[in-house]
Design a protein around this nucleic acid. Sequence first.
DNA 1: TAGTTAAGAATAGTGTTGCTATTATTTTTG
DNA 2: CAAAAATAATAGCAACACTATTCTTAACTA
Lengths: 233, 233
Amino acid sequence: MLLLFLQEITFMDLVDRFQIPVLEAIALRNPQATQLGQRIIEGSILLINELGFEQFTFKKLALSVGTTEASVYRYFSSKQKLLLYLINWYWGRLECRLLLQTQGGNPKERLVKALELLLVPQPTSLSFTNEKRLQRIVIHEASKVFLTKAVDTDHQTGFHSIYLQIVHYICDLVRAYQPNCKYPEMLVTTLLEGSLQQRFFGQHLPEVTNASEQEDAVAVFYTQLFFSYLDHE
Amino acid sequence: MLLLFLQEITFMDLVDRFQIPVLEAIALRNPQATQLGQRIIEGSILLINELGFEQFTFKKLALSVGTTEASVYRYFSSKQKLLLYLINWYWGRLECRLLLQTQGGNPKERLVKALELLLVPQPTSLSFTNEKRLQRIVIHEASKVFLTKAVDTDHQTGFHSIYLQIVHYICDLVRAYQPNCKYPEMLVTTLLEGSLQQRFFGQHLPEVTNASEQEDAVAVFYTQLFFSYLDHE
DNA sequence: TAGTTAAGAATAGTGTTGCTATTATTTTTG
DNA sequence: CAAAAATAATAGCAACACTATTCTTAACTA
């Protein structure tokens, strides 16, 4: 019991302290290393949530965390980079959980665990409200790091490498479970992106989803979809 | 043979002349009704393709079609509205095709036809290159009409009604085929949005999709996914 | 046919955004 | 403690989204 408790602490710690090399390439300085940097991250999560990414500016951010626009530019060369940083932070923690929590068991069990981690919002040691806000940003803004003129150069620079790793890792689990699967990548990204989109629809266009009907509708639907496709052949 | 030819012409005509009430609410004036309006539409398709929506401005558009920024604002109150117009134009023509081409047959046949219309790019009477460009805009920019702070008011105003109608129509086909299906809306939007996203990945992040492997991979995958889910229960 | 109206276009703005160069201040470290 | 490095503040610029106002031309009408 005590051991379990200690493991819990250690695990939370691991996920949060997990070093993500990509993040250092995205930011000009490491914002976690200074007090101002941390205020910038905290403040940006609050403000992007409040205003939406389009209305969010470094000037407004600077005002809200008590600094100047130019100082924010010393950490991030653009607001797009800041968003990329936040999104990668989120994916980085998901990847960490995936690697730690899908080690044991047979292929099916590992897949089921992976789907749970993807589809069910996970608790963290971040403050509850901050975690909710970051999830809201992922749901509302994550696609915007792809849907930009800079995708190709961002991709070349490796800014999306964590996302690629996650997709690749789950595809390997899929192939271990069902070696005949012809389109594992499509299946996995359909799940990843689709589940986020359904949560967006649930909040804003409830007519085109069933996400608002039950708490776990998204997880249930995509798990069924996933395995009925894999078990069909 | 002659009759078939005439029918072809009439059909093309129908799709293109199809009146879309939403479009009139989105634009300040009907751009199809004046020569300048048509140049604005044509020019915006070219320029959004070239620059991406973020870099696209009314000033650049005005320059490229030989008018002034203020004149463009007499047709569209913002560049977001112009994008909404283009995307709704695309959905409008898809809806028209759906209504015309999925009338006969049993539920299964109607569903198969509907999926084909959704998943396989359709020829039109627009110039081939212009049609390609509009499809590229839908793939790269369509989500941006949802992912904005104005979703809720846009939705209330009915700016997304064509999209809702399409989803609703196909959901009815799904229910006719498989009355027990618990999550038809999720299934249909997963297909609609997923297929666009896979084409985006195919062009920019080929590692996370199988869309680039064969010409028809997207259509094949989503058709399989769709029916293995519906036939599973 | 002269007069009224309205659509269309041009001019010239306003306020905001994204970003940078420069200078000043604080903190770190040899 | 002094030099170097990190951090912050000032001020500014070009571009952007959008608007108010005026001018021009075409269309209808008495």
